[in-house]
Design a protein around this nucleic acid. Sequence first.
DNA 1: ACCTGAACACCGTTCAAGT
DNA 2: ACCTGAACACCGTTCAAGT
Lengths: 215, 215
Amino acid sequence: MLSTTTSSATVRRVIERRYHHGNLREALLRRAQEVIRERGVAALSLRELARDVGVSHAAPRRHFADRGALLDALALAGFARLGAALRAGHDEARPDDYGGAIRAVAHAYVDFAVRDADLLELMFAGKHGDDGEVNAEIDAAARAAFGPVLELIVSAQDAALLPAGDPERVGMIHLATIQGIATLLRAGMVTADQVDGLVEDAAAQFLAAAVQTQA
Amino acid sequence: MLSTTTSSATVRRVIERRYHHGNLREALLRRAQEVIRERGVAALSLRELARDVGVSHAAPRRHFADRGALLDALALAGFARLGAALRAGHDEARPDDYGGAIRAVAHAYVDFAVRDADLLELMFAGKHGDDGEVNAEIDAAARAAFGPVLELIVSAQDAALLPAGDPERVGMIHLATIQGIATLLRAGMVTADQVDGLVEDAAAQFLAAAVQTQA
DNA sequence: ACCTGAACACCGTTCAAGT
DNA sequence: ACCTGAACACCGTTCAAGT
């Protein structure tokens, strides 16, 4: 039918147009996340990405100076998404239920780590940049993502449920524990059905140790 | 001088011979560890390795079926070295000083993680093998490496310093915490001078939470 | 402003051939 | 038994050229 032909031609033109209006960057990032999830960071190739998205192999250069720049952008987007997930976990609990919030955030973190294990590894890979220094933008995004955890600790301290003290330090141990559980799962040293129990233990230990410190 | 010429020719022949007698494999593994330490796993190239060691680019194939097999061998060797380091840490403490032993092992672990951050990441990368399953040999090596930690917990339980219970589960939380501290350090979220304090906190929390569980 | 096509130097993998 | 050399298909990066 004529209308079908017309509309399909229109769609084609629109798609072509979109790439000329700044959407190639998003398309590349979206596809890159899929590839990482399916086959890992090592299998991520700029040329294949360009092919998948229907553009020449040199086109990504407009948006990402090199492969490292693409990885940095992925890490940045990853921290934004992780931050949203942690915040959503935090908001699942009732406002005064600090223990519940701590557990919900921990579970949200591990869920993210399971679903996007390779992306998380990339996010924590550090040494973004040729000379081995930490990318300041990514570092800031990471700290922002963990904001809900710190707020939680400060709130609990205000409510006298946790002893006063540097929330960064108290929270860092807890964060390390959760992150470590995710790593052990990824390595196969912990099975999927053990994870929930370990996360519960970690949250309980976090609260218990805080009380212990207080005594 | 004649003798110098003779001996240098002898050395050359010996080196050539060594490669023909099964040392190419060790030479490749040794050089690979250096490259990983200096420039990371992603920068590891079989061809460059062969060049560095003075052999043709196809020679490594005799000893490693492909790049993945080399990485597996590196992970295996890494766990052997990590196990030795943890055992050495354990032996630093007096036989009856469980708290000291736990702290020493934790510090040994983080030291390894700092010195060989990229290797450790490779060791925990999981999914060795094309279809995403965990390599059984590497998994066994990992469990063997963490043997000293489990022994420690069992000993402490026998001495009634820790509550009875599954040592794997009790120890796994502690191990996760230490591993997580290493990851946060690598990511730049924790500075090098904070690490010792965090490790001390983690060890104290481990013992405190155990006491708490007992009560 | 954004993308293409050709070019360059690298890489992993394979395989016949050498000693 | 162990290694070499040529070959293939891929990759990241660069750059002149197109629209």
